[in-house]
Design a protein around this nucleic acid. Structure first.
Lengths: 226, 226
DNA sequence: TTGATAGTTGACCGGTCGGTCAAGTTATTG
DNA sequence: CAATAACTTGACCGACCGGTCAACTATCAA
C-alpha cells in the first residue's frame, strides 16, 4: 500500500479543536480508502472474489465508484491490498498471541489451533457460515486466473511457513522433537491447516475444526537423511 | 444424470449400416449432453465456476446455448452433474487402483499419494498450471454462495472419507496401527490431501505434492478414549 | 404417412460487470 | 488570496452474464 499520504485530521463526530482526539494517520481520503478496504475485506471473505462486484464494494463502503478508482487502479490491486490487511490481522490476532514464548514450542502450535477455532467460530456466528481462510479462498479461486494475486498469496504463505518453521526450530533445540525436516514439516502443517479450513467450510461445521485442528501439532516430515 | 434416454445410433463418420460400429448408449442428444458435460468439466477445472460462462462452455462444446438449456435447467445443475463425473473419474483412475488389496493397507495410502502426484503432474503439463482438486476448488469458491453445490461436494467428501476409513479399518485389523479414531483420521487425511493440493496450486509447483503427499499415510488422530 | 416428441437454432432479454471520465467540490500550499 | 492538487460525484461505456423463446428440423412409433 505504501501509505505515502499523511497530514490532515479526521473527524469522528468530535470537536476538532480538542487536540487530544486528533488522529494523525488518517486523512479524509485515507478514511475513504480505508472504508473501501474494509468493505472489500468483509465482502470478499464472506462471498468470493467474482461474486463481489466493485459496485457492491462501493455501496457497502458508502463511496462512489469514481472514488474507488481514485485510490485503486483496479479490483485486482484492491484485492492485493486486502490480502495485506488480512495478513496484518492474522499476525496480530493469531500468530503473535500463539507464538509468545511463555510455553514450550509445540504447545504454542496447539494454542494456535485453539485460537483459530475460536476466531473462525466467532466469524461463522456473525456471518451464518464458516468462511474459511481468506488466503486459501483467494488462492483457490484465482491462482489459475490472476498471477499477481497468486504470487501475493504465495508470498503470505511463505511468511506463515517461516513463522511455523521458527517455532519448530525452537522445538528441535529444546529436544522436544528430533529428526524432522523443519521446512517441510512447517509446509505440511500449513497445508493441513488450509485443508482443515476447507473441510470445515465445505461441511459448514465448526466442530470439524475442533476435531481436526489439534492434530496440527503432531504432523512430522522426517529429515531427508532418514 | 439418470440417463433415462436410450435408443438411436451415433454416427462417427462411419457407415451406419455396419452394425458392428453401433454404439447403443449414446443417442445424438446424449452426445450433445456429454459434450457439454466434458466441456464444462475441463473449463471449470482449469479456471473457476464464475470465470467460465455458459456461453464459453457451449462454444467449447460446439453447441448452441439453446441446446444447453434443453439438457440442463441451469448452470448450477450442470455443475452438480459435473461433480458426479469428477467423482467417477477419481474413483476409477485413483481410488480403485490405489486401494486394491494386493499390498498392506497403509501402503495403499502411499500408493494413492503417488498416483495423485502423477495425475496432477500430467494435468499440469497439459494446462500449464497446477489445477488442484476439482471438489476443493468448487467447495471453496461456492460453499457460502450455493447451498446445493456445497452439499454435493460435502456428499462426495463423505464418500472419499468412507473409502479411506475402510482402508484404515483394515490397517487396524491387521495390527498395522492401533488406538486411532478411524473416522477422524480418515477425515484428517482427506483434509491434509486437500490442503496439499491447495498449496501446490498456490505455489504452482508439482514438487510440493512430491514433498508433502507421502506424509498423508502417517497422519493419526488418537481414539477419543486416549 | 402422420402426429408427436426430442433436439437444435440463434436472436433476444434485463441486468451486471470492471472501468472511464468530465465536471464539480474541498483542502492544502505559497 | 489565488493556484493547485486531492478528492468526489454520478452518468456513461462496451462487453458479457445466465437464461428465454418461438421457430425449425430430425427422429420415432403407430
Amino acid at each position: 500500500m505504501a501509505n505515502a499520504r499523511r497530514s490532515g485530521f479526521r473527524r469522528l463526530g468530535v470537536d476538532l479543536t480538542d487536540r487530544s482526539t486528533i488522529m494523525q494517520v488518517m486523512t479524509p481520503s485515507a478514511d475513504t480508502q480505508t472504508r473501501i478496504l474494509e468493505s472489500a475485506r468483509e465482502l470478499i471473505h464472506a462471498r468470493s472474489y467474482a461474486d463481489v462486484g466493485v459496485t457492491a464494494i462501493c455501496e457497502h463502503a458508502g463511496v462512489n465508484k469514481g472514488s474507488f478508482y481514485h485510490f485503486f487502479p483496479s479490483k485486482r490491486d484492491l484485492t492485493i491490498a486486502v490480502l495485506d490487511t488480512y495478513y496484518l490481522e492474522m499476525k496480530e490476532q493469531l500468530l503473535d498471541r500463539a507464538f509468545s514464548s511463555d510455553i514450550p514450542p509445540l504447545q504454542r502450535l496447539e494454542r494456535l489451533a485453539v485460537l483459530i477455532y475460536e476466531f473462525q467460530k466467532e466469524v461463522a456466528d456473525r456471518a451464518g457460515h464458516i468462511l474459511g481462510c481468506p488466503f486459501g479462498n483467494l488462492a483457490v479461486e484465482l491462482s489459475t486466473q490472476d498471477e499477481p494475486i497468486r504470487r501475493k498469496v504465495a508470498e503470505i504463505f511463505a511468511r506463515l511457513r517461516a513463522d511455523i518453521r521458527q517455532t519448530l526450530e525452537e522445538a528441535v533445540e529444546t529436544g522436544a522433537v528430533q529428526g524432522i525436516d523443519v521446512g517441510a514439516t512447517a509446509e505440511a502443517m500449513l497445508a493441513y491447516f488450509e485443508g482443515v479450513m476447507l473441510m470445515a467450510k465445505t461441511r459448514n461445521d465448526p466442530d470439524v475444526l475442533r476435531q481436526l485442528l489439534p492434530a496440527l501439532a503432531q504432523i512430522r516430515i522426517a529429515h531427508p537423511g532418514d
